[in-house]
Structures are given as structure tokens and as C-alpha cells.
């Protein structure tokens, strides 16, 4: 009866598209990761773990790209979460009026294409003519008018800063929904007991918000590990290659025809992300039950 009413072929369209464009390339990736596949010759040879050895032990900088990706991911998670939580509290427990208008404006960057955001900030962060430095000079802070995107020390933090600018509103909106779902009784009871604001925050708000914070962290994590547009446009991995991340490195190797190496790097990312994804989905389903 059920199989008649809900025939499995209904799922075939989704399975076909998903299988061909998602799963098949990933599986092929694992095979090609062990080859010297490149654009110079049509022969593909099995070379064992050589690509992975290149990634983990060579001086070609891959470890640096992995490290950059992790630094970017961790920094954006922490900054976005802390700022977004502050703003979410401000808009739910702070201001009484105009909260929706503020939220509307603060979320706006999240709907803009990352590419466009990056182009605009390439102009804002220009050392000579950019808005940031001209403003700093205008108020006498010439010392702070730095070479944001071309200084080796500053390039990655600048990219992180721009990404936080764009991503905070998104996390904030989710946290606002989480905060609004906390039953008011808890706060009323705490008020009767005369609890301080800080105690309320650490004993009610934060524990009750934990499931939502977990989700936003995972979302930021999955995004951070795959970061591409912003790095590609703002610094293109430079200066030198100090801001190169996994996805931009894959694109570089791909453009230069080093397909085997690019695939090995991609497969590595795949293993990490699917493992993280597996636990996330289990986590979300556990919450479903409660």
C-alpha cells in the first residue's frame, strides 16, 4: 500500500542530479587523488600517496594554506558569534522600539553576493584612496592608516574582518530567533530572585541558547572551510601566497593543470567536512526528538 501511494521513483530526479553532480565527482576524486593526472599529458599514472606527501611535507606551502583556512574559520566563528550575540541581546532585551528596522539593516550584507562585497571592500581598504584610510587620516589617526591588503601581517586579518562584516547579520538573526524562544517565565523567576544581569546571562540565556549556538557554529564552520570568493577577489591569495586557503589553492592548481594534486586536496577537505557533517546531522536529529 505504502509503496504504491509513495512510489520510490519520485525520489529518482533528486537522486540522479545529486548523484551525478555531487557524489560521482567526490568518488572519482578519491581515485584520481592517487594519480599524476595533469593537463600536459593524456596518460594518467598511479602514484600512490605522492600527492598527499606533497601536501603534508613539501615546502610548496600547502600546510600554510591549510593553516590559513583553519585560522580564518576559527577567527570568523569566534568574532561572528560574539558580535552577533551582543547585537541579538541588544535587539531583544535592549532597545524597545525600532528593533525590526535595525535587524533589517544589519542583515542586509548577508544577502549581497560575496563577490560584490569583496569588490567594494577592495576599494574601501585601498591604502591611498580607500575610505577607511582617508577617514582615519581626516581625524588625525595617520598611524592607523595601514596597507590593509598588501601587508603580509595584515592581509589575512583584513580578509577576516570583511567576512565578519558580511556574516554577522546572518548569525544575529538566527540567535534572535533562539533568544525569543526562551520562555519568559525563566527571566521573571530570576527577577523575583533578584539575580544580576550577568547571572541571568550565564545561568539562563547561555545554556538555553546552546543548541542554537551549536548550529550557528556548524554553519560558520562549513562556510569557513570552503571560503573562496572573498580571498580570491580581495587578495587572490597574496601578497606572495600568505592568504591562500584550501579552495583558492585548489583553483590555482586546477588553473595550472595540476589536476591530481588539486583533487587530493579536495578529497582531504571532503573527508573532514563529511565527518563534521555526519555528526552535525545526528546532532540536529537528536534535538528534533526533544
Amino acid at each position: 500500500m505504502k509503496n504504491q501511494a509513495y512510489p520510490f521513483y519520485f525520489a529518482s530526479g533528486a537522486l540522479l542530479l545529486y548523484g551525478v553532480f555531487f557524489v560521482l565527482p567526490s568518488l572519482l576524486g578519491f581515485a584520481y587523488a592517487f594519480t599524476d593526472w595533469n593537463s600536459y599529458t593524456t596518460d594518467v599514472h598511479w602514484i600512490g600517496f605522492d600527492n598527499f606527501i606533497t601536501i603534508f611535507t613539501s615546502t610548496k606551502g600547502y600546510l600554510r594554506y591549510l593553516q590559513n583556512t583553519v585560522v580564518f574559520t576559527v577567527a570568523t566563528i569566534v568574532l561572528k558569534t560574539v558580535i552577533a550575540l551582543g547585537l541579538a541581546l541588544l535587539l531583544t532585551h535592549g532597545v524597545r522600539r525600532l528593533a525590526n528596522l535595525y535587524r533589517l539593516l544589519m542583515y542586509l550584507p548577508a544577502v549581497l553576493p560575496m563577490l560584490v562585497v569583496s569588490l567594494v571592500f577592495a576599494s574601501i581598504l585601498d591604502p591611498a584612496t580607500g575610505l577607511l584610510n582617508t577617514s582615519l587620516r581626516a581625524v588625525g589617526l595617520d598611524l592607523l592608516a595601514l596597507r590593509w591588503l598588501t601587508d603580509i601581517q595584515l592581509a589575512l586579518p583584513s580578509v577576516i574582518g570583511v567576512d565578519v562584516w558580511r556574516g554577522v547579520g546572518y548569525i544575529m538573526v538566527i540567535l534572535i530567533a533562539g533568544l525569543q524562544a526562551i520562555p519568559k517565565d525563566y527571566y521573571e523567576a530570576a527577577e523575583i530572585d533578584g539575580a544580576s544581569g550577568w547571572t541571568v546571562f550565564t545561568h539562563i540565556t547561555l545554556p538555553m541558547l546552546m543548541p542554537v549556538l551549536t548550529v550557528t557554529t556548524v554553519l560558520n564552520l562549513l562556510y569557513g572551510l570552503k571560503v573562496f570568493d572573498i580571498v580570491y577577489v580581495l587578495t587572490n591569495g597574496g601578497p606572495g601566497r600568505v592568504t591562500e586557503t584550501v579552495y583558492t589553492a585548489i583553483f590555482q592548481d586546477f588553473s595550472k593543470g595540476r589536476y591530481g594534486l588539486a583533487t587530493a586536496l579536495s578529497s582531504l577537505l571532503f573527508v573532514v567536512m563529511v565527518t563534521l557533517g555526519y555528526y552535525t546531522i545526528r546532532l540536529m536529529h537528536r534535538e528534533d526528538v526533544s
Binding site: 545529486y18 555531487f22 560521482l24 565527482p25 567526490s26 572519482l28 576524486g29 584520481y32 562549513l222 572551510l225 570552503k226 579552495y247 585548489i250 583553483f251 586546477f254 589536476y259 588539486a262 583533487t263 579536495s266 578529497s267 577537505l269 571532503f270 567536512m273 563529511v274 563534521l276 557533517g277 555526519y278 552535525t280 546531522i281
Partner: peptide, 11 residues
């Protein structure tokens, strides 16, 4: 699971 899966652009 595809939500977490990165695309292998090369293959």
C-alpha cells in the same frame, strides 16, 4: 549529507 559536502571541482 550534501549540506556539508564540498564539491570536487576538478573531477
Amino acid at each position: 549529507m550534501g549540506i556539508a559536502m564540498p564539491t570536487n571541482f576538478v573531477t
